[in-house]
Design a protein around this nucleic acid. Structure first.
Length: 351
DNA sequence: AACTCGGGGAT
DNA sequence: ATCCCAGAGTT
């Protein structure tokens, strides 16, 4: 592993010259670093920027986050995905308030004990916000290290990840662990790109990178193939009455847990409305939509319904246009029906 | 170890 | 279409 011993100085030099200007780098308090790291889990920098700004604008401190209404929290997270990150974020904020008296803990083990914080995120917060010399091994770091050292290990395997974490711990510059960890990630995000398209001419490790020298960047890192998605057909019901649309809340666990949605069922028809006690006055096609999750693909066909009266099953709500836009958190899966819903809802005085 | 959990941008 | 992203929690 002698490549990792040579790496720190040229990499840190490169990082100081090429680091992107990012909002969580300008004032890296533990709260800022933590929030950014949670938002950045499996999510690109570009997708996070606006969410990060809006979130801190409304919830500038850990205490604010601990106290905010869940419905408002989910609205702030709407569209970012992996919604349990938001719930765990608040759970952890309450841990910080109650267990640590409102002061963000500074050791790797304490940070790791927070909800939603795993070994990567604990390492990132500890090193960046507190200067603790621990690695932060994400997908970028695995790719960079496997290429530079010519590691053939399957990066989807925990033992490969643990081996690389240990190698980094033994070779990282202990004086500036935060910059080193961020430099590894920055290199992976901007130069050592995936899918065999790295910009090796720009890489500070090009002189000693095993994958570059032996022309194996297209093959490394080794990664086991992932399982195929399953397709689900769903019928979506856009039910209107007096300028409002019917919404229901999804179950507390599982896919899109706790978010609001237009009622939908697997391959249902108008008969479904009777089961809900809804009398359709007129029916239209509401268009179609496709949404691709990581492991599921929804093919949706919508029915637009004008209801004869205001009756709905327990727990469902009538949302006017403003509530649809500003109150209820809907997943992006239903975005293709938003245009029709907005057309057929009205602003009302209620909220 | 395998599975679940979003959404989007790049190729 | 496929890959993969500053991964973590559950089973």
């Amino acid at each position: 592993m002698k490549e990792l011993e040579i790496l720190p100085i040229p990499l840190i030099q490169w990082y100081h010259e090429n680091a992107r200007v990012l909002p969580w780098r300008s004032d890296p308090t533990p709260y800022h670093v933590w929030l950014s790291e949670i938002m950045l889990q499996q999510t690109r920098v570009a997708a996070v920027l606006d969410y990060y700004r809006r979130f801190l604008e409304e919830l500038p401190t850990v205490a604010d986050l601990a106290a905010v209404e869940e419905e408002r929290l989910m609205k702030l997270w709407q569209g970012l995905g992996y919604y349990n990150r938001a719930r765990n974020l608040q759970k952890a904020a309450r841990q910080v308030m109650e267990t640590y008296g409102g002061v963000f803990p500074g050791t790797y083990e304490e940070i790791l004990s927070l909800a939603g914080v795993g070994d990567y995120t604990a390492g990132a917060i500890a090193s960046i916000a507190f200067g603790v010399p621990v690695p932060a091994v994400d997908g970028n770091v695995l790719r960079v290290v496997c290429r530079i050292t010519g590691d053939e290990g399957d990066i989807t395997r925990p033992d490969t990840k643990n081996r690389i974490r240990k190698a980094l711990l033994d070779t990282m510059p202990k004086a500036f662990p935060g910059d080193y960890n961020q430099a590894l990630m920055e290199l992976g995000a901007t130069v050592c790109l995936p899918n065999g398209a790295p910009l090796c001419e720009k890489c500070p490790a090009r002189a000693f990178c095993v994958a570059h020298i032996t022309e194996q960047t297209g093959r490394l890192p080794v990664k086991a193939p992932k399982k195929a998605r399953r397709v689900e057909k769903r019928t979506v019901f856009l039910i209107f009455h007096e300028g409002k649309v019917a919404l229901r809340q999804r179950p507390k666990k599982g896919l899109l847990a706790g978010l609001w949605e237009y009622p939908n069922e697997p391959e249902a028809d108008v008969g479904q409305l009777a089961e809900w006690g809804i009398t359709p006055l007129c029916l239209d096609h509401g268009g179609t939509g496709k949404h691709i999750f990581t492991h599921i693909e929804w093919h949706m066909s919508a029915l637009a319904v004008e209801a004869a009266d205001g009756h709905l099953p327990d727990g469902w709500v009538w949302a006017d246009r403003r509530a649809l836009q500003e109150r209820y958190a809907l997943p992006n899966a239903f975005q293709s029906f938003m245009g029709l819903a907005l057309d057929r809802t009205e602003e009302t005085s209620e909220f």
